[in-house]
Measured scan of single mutants.
Amino acid sequence: YQDQEQRILKFLEELGEGKATTAHDLSGKLGTPKKEINRVLYSLAKKGKLQKEAGTPPLWKIAVS
């Protein structure tokens, strides 16, 4: 689980600052079920590491501290 968090954070960091992506996109790029990706995304957002942008589907990006 920790491993997934690292992979997602790394992927988003590599996208570049301010760039956002969807759970669907992450799921495809990382070869992980979207349900699992979503769980990790919401967990990271709760920890303040990610920012969720409203929309359908929601967009995710690295939180700027």
Rank of each mutant, 00 (worst) to 15 (best):
Y1D: 12
Y1N: 15
Y1M: 14
Q2R: 12
Q2P: 05
Q2M: 11
Q2H: 05
D3R: 06
D3S: 08
D3Q: 06
Q4Y: 07
E5R: 03
E5N: 02
Q6N: 09
R7A: 10
R7M: 09
I8F: 01
I8Y: 01
I8T: 04
I8C: 06
L9A: 02
L9C: 15
K10V: 04
K10G: 11
K10L: 07
K10A: 07
F11W: 07
F11Y: 12
F11R: 06
F11K: 09
L12Q: 00
L12V: 10
L12C: 06
L12I: 14
E13Q: 12
E13L: 09
E13D: 09
E13V: 09
E13C: 06
E13T: 12
E13S: 12
E14M: 13
E14K: 14
L15C: 10
L15F: 05
L15E: 09
G16T: 04
G16V: 02
G16P: 15
E17A: 15
E17L: 05
E17C: 10
E17T: 10
E17S: 11
G18W: 03
G18L: 05
K19M: 14
A20F: 12
A20H: 12
A20D: 04
A20S: 14
T21H: 06
T21K: 03
T21A: 12
T21N: 02
T21G: 02
T22P: 02
T22I: 01
T22M: 02
T22H: 04
T22C: 05
T22N: 07
A23I: 04
A23C: 07
A23H: 02
A23L: 05
H24W: 13
H24N: 07
D25V: 13
D25I: 13
D25K: 11
L26T: 01
S27Y: 04
S27W: 02
S27Q: 07
S27I: 04
S27G: 06
G28T: 12
G28Q: 14
K29G: 08
K29P: 04
K29T: 09
K29E: 10
K29V: 14
K29S: 12
L30Y: 03
L30S: 04
G31F: 08
G31W: 03
G31S: 13
T32W: 13
T32I: 11
T32C: 11
T32H: 14
K34T: 12
K34P: 10
K34H: 15
K34M: 10
K35C: 10
K35I: 14
K35Q: 06
E36G: 04
E36T: 15
E36Q: 14
I37T: 05
I37S: 01
N38Q: 12
R39D: 07
R39H: 14
R39F: 06
R39V: 07
V40P: 01
V40N: 13
V40Q: 10
V40H: 11
L41W: 00
Y42G: 09
Y42T: 11
Y42V: 09
Y42C: 10
Y42S: 10
S43C: 11
S43N: 15
S43P: 01
L44F: 01
L44P: 00
L44K: 00
A45R: 13
A45C: 13
A45M: 15
A45E: 14
K46E: 13
K46F: 04
K46I: 06
G48R: 04
G48F: 02
G48V: 00
G48W: 01
G48C: 03
G48D: 04
K49G: 03
K49V: 13
L50F: 02
L50D: 00
L50N: 00
L50S: 02
Q51A: 12
Q51H: 14
Q51G: 03
Q51P: 00
Q51I: 15
E53F: 10
A54I: 12
T56V: 10
T56M: 10
T56D: 08
T56H: 15
T56Q: 14
T56R: 15
T56A: 12
P57L: 04
P57S: 04
P57T: 04
P58R: 03
P58D: 08
L59I: 07
L59R: 14
L59F: 06
W60Q: 02
W60C: 01
W60V: 01
K61G: 04
K61M: 07
K61C: 04
K61Q: 07
K61P: 01
I62W: 03
I62T: 07
I62E: 03
I62V: 13
I62H: 06
A63T: 06
A63S: 12
A63E: 06
V64L: 08
V64Y: 05
S65H: 04
S65A: 13
S65Y: 09
S65R: 08
